[in-house]
Nucleic acid binder design. Structure first.
Lengths: 189, 189
DNA sequence: ATAATACCATACGCTACAGTATGGAGCGGT
DNA sequence: ACCGCTCCATACTGTAGCGTATGGTATTAT
């Protein structure tokens, strides 16, 4: 139905994609082997061939998510030379309704495993770092760039949660565009 | 040990407090009857005398949390006449390391039950409303006040999550004070 | 003192899921 | 045509938690 080509066998990535979808909408705790198997139309006999256990799936799924997100940012944001334009592009991307953001915001409230805390800390510091770098390139001093990037990133994180809470989903493209413009005006000048 | 006066029997509030503590640190999904009973030094025979089921506990716990938070804001924030000072006080309170904030930020990523979504939506809109009101009283027009309050509230929510992620807990009083000052400078002038 | 009520322990059945063990279908290589 | 590998189904065991049923103890009321 959903697939154009009906596959005969599943790959590890199929399981990871299904897991990431669950994480995005219900959190890591909701990633369960048997329900996922049912959803994919197989039994857990398949699962334990591809993965050693439940946490292994979570681990590899998050790895895939992280790589995909990194690639996206590197290609669409970090390639922009002008720091102000780069920040603006980041604000716009931040308000875009993509799964990656949902996963991130869900993980931010998850305290179920130290692995997750570790990954989150790394990612967050990475992102703060490149925001700070952009502010510095704009000519602001170290201290201001640090505080301002923390502020900007807080807006990003906060908005993700607000969107889910107030609308049940991320805003559509038009709303996102408008909000990004306002945020940029307040935090970029 | 922890109690000065060793109580002979538990009250419903004892269960609610224990539940709120779990919600703050591990989320609603982690609220389980038997583990809580063990923690409180009783069996679930006690629990099912005080509550009809697990969700009943969650429901009443969140009700208690909500009332307590409302009372706190009404007494320490809404009593301030000057809108600018009122907003500043709110910023400071927002960065304070209290359990109420932890609970709120945890719930924001919880999609386990429609009850929670409903409560969150109400609370968030309430808070946005009084922020917007303060900005209006400062002289800003309707549209700006709305966008700015959304921005400010996003910072609040985002900062909560960032704190947990980067430090494992909310910042101490000194850091909170500094950050609140910076935020106020950026969002209050 | 006795009866009622509040509070809790114990023991039970039930379900969902984790993980293992094993067998089997289908396919490519030779 | 047979072998071996990939992928999955089936059938277990084990555990954790939900909710119920019922009996027991301690406190309070009368």
């Amino acid at each position: 139905m959903n697939e154009v080509v009906k596959k005969k066998s599943l790959t590890a990535e199929d399981w990871q994609d299904a897991a990431l979808n669950v994480i995005a909408h219900q959190g890591v705790a909701a990633v369960a082997v048997e329900p996922l198997a049912r959803e994919l139309g197989v039994t857990k006999g398949s699962f334990y061939w591809h993965f050693s256990n439940r946490m292994d799936l979570v681990k590899q799924s998050l790895k895939k998510w992280r790589l995909g997100d990194k690639k996206l940012v590197e290609e669409t944001i970090l390639t922009i030379k002008n720091p102000k334009k780069r920040l603006l592009a980041w604000f716009k991307l931040s308000a875009e309704p993509i799964q990656s953001h949902l996963i991130y915001s869900t993980l931010l409230a998850d305290r179920s495993h130290t692995l997750i805390s570790k990954i989150l800390k790394e990612i967050t510091l990475e992102r703060l770092s490149h925001l700070q770098q952009s502010y510095r390139e704009m000519g602001f001093d170290e201290k201001f760039a640090k505080a301002q990037s923390l502020l900007a990133y807080s807006v990003y994180v906060g908005f993700l949660h607000m969107s889910k809470t107030l609308y049940g989903s991320l805003p559509d493209s038009k709303q996102a565009e408008e909000y990004a413009q306002f945020v940029a005006k307040q935090l970029l000048s």
